[in-house]
Amino acid sequence: MADDVLFEFLHMEIVSYVEQSAKKDEKDRLVAKLEQMGYRVGQSVVERLTKDTPRFSSELDIIKFICKDFWSSILKKQVDNLRTNHLGVYVLQDNKFRFLVQLSASKQYLEAAPKYLAFTCGLVRGALANVGLNCIVTAEVSNMPACKFQIMIQRS
């Protein structure tokens, strides 16, 4: 079993590596690149998580799975609050986000925070894509270490 600390360090190194390499081209590639890395991991992880489970019965069922099982296996806790407009937009609030707790909980690093959420956005998008929901996932931080993930389901 790999230790949790190791994963957190690895995540930090990935963020800092991508940030350094992004300086060469453009800054806005940073979040997209991290998101893309997360997407691929999310796709594989969700396959393992849902291997022996019954089929999901509804969209809400899938979102609940993300909030509980997915979140607790990956971010070591459940989502604290889930809101929806019942039109395909879900907002997941995590009051103590795993990758933000190591940062100072002041306004000082607020600008640096989004890059620590991008990988997770990708994880969630990848996971949802593989259980049949195409979506856009974005995240925002207003008050460290709490953050909100917004999932917008894309219906075609």
């Binding site: 994963f7 393992r48 998580l49 849902t50 607790s72 296996s73 990956i74």
Partner: peptide, 16 residues
């Protein structure tokens, strides 16, 4: 759910 959370952590790490 049958997935073992420790195993998933391990695999998450490996995949990442």
């Amino acid at each position: 759910r049958s997935a073992d959370p420790r195993k998933v952590s391990q695999e998450l790490f490996t995949l990442t």
